[in-house]
Design a protein around this nucleic acid. Structure first.
Lengths: 180, 180
DNA sequence: CGATCGGTTGATATGAATCAACGTGCGTGG
DNA sequence: CCACGCACGTTGATTCATATCAACCGATCG
């Protein structure tokens, strides 16, 4: 479990291409489903300084048998992960560059807001453009152009490790391609 | 649970675009994770004549508490689903049209072979090109061109509801972009 | 002070989408 | 039994979105 800082899960392809699968925020398990795997099938990397707390899989499983309500909590989170994966698949398969980036930003904003007090529509946001690129399947050059366009249109501004949202409605509208 | 025939899970976007999330073969639960959801977050459609067997979620959950080994079976399947989603995300985000189609075919071939005796490298395969297109995020026109190229290169041939593989190595090689 | 990293911008290339036409097989209704 | 319509696949011409290549800039850091 990630207790502090940001990280991400990713898959590295044979030829070096990298797909970011999800970003990890404080309180996140690396992956609920992988509590039941022998080993992770993905890699994890820190984005900022992080704090990690670990527990042996065997111990987790022991506690689960002792405490059945834990199981249902874990199951719910697992279902949520599956749902989130499905929406990401739809976004990557069907949406344009703008839509995908807007979708990623909206999803992340929700999760950041659940952990931080947000003032002035300004979110702590340690991603580099390359991370966005690897998460939505674009090049960083193109991400730069799209974010530039968002800035010019007064939608969002990314700088200094923060994200400032100046037109939330328009951003959500662009992201709406997948429901919620 | 799907007992006979083929189907698929999909998400329909607001503007009509459709993303196929997975194909369902005999023996598949629609989605393991959604045993714990209130409702499906996706839609399901039959591809052929199908037979369906259903059980109330409450009853599944009852049996799970009675029989803890069931839980671990379900958990394993859930982890496998999550892993599969991750590979699909990587394929959609990073791979070319050829690679994505090859990847889909290889994955499906494995699952078909687990349920059927395969002779002459010929697999029962009821998908239309439009289904492939919606699964890998391409247009059916482009799928037609890529499959035509595969046919000309002597890799695979799709016709009459069957898939004949004439160069499995080359197909796997094209699909290798994501490890297995 | 130079090196490196992250971001921006321009020119060009390319993979896939789009638009359109056509063929073929098949089911249906006359 | 035939004629029609429709779904599916194929093919060509063209357009468009995104990648690629390259140069440059500013900030940061050793």
């Amino acid at each position: 479990m990630l207790c502090g800082g940001w990280g991400f899960r990713f898959l590295q392809l044979a030829d070096g291409r990298r797909q970011i699968l999800s970003f990890l925020l404080p309180g996140d398990l690396f992956s609920v489903a992988s509590v039941f795997e022998e080993r992770f099938h993905f890699s994890v990397k820190a984005l900022t300084a992080v704090q990690i707390s670990t527990m042996r899989r065997s111990e987790v499983q022991l506690r689960l048998t002792e405490n059945p309500t834990l199981i249902s909590a874990l199951a719910k989170t697992c279902a949520a992960e599956a749902q989130s994966s499905d929406y990401i698949i739809a976004a990557l398969g069907q949406c344009s560059a703008e839509e995908r980036i807007a979708f990623l930003l909206v999803q992340l904003m929700k999760r950041i807001a659940a952990r931080n007090v947000i003032r002035e529509h300004t979110y702590p946001f340690p991603l580099r453009q390359q991370h966005i690129a690897d998460a939505v399947g674009l090049t960083s050059v193109h991400v730069s152009r799209v974010l530039g366009a968002f800035r010019d249109r007064g939608i969002v501004e990314m700088s200094n490790g923060t994200l400032r949202v100046t037109d939330l409605n328009e951003l959500k509208h662009l992201a709406h391609c997948t429901g919620q």
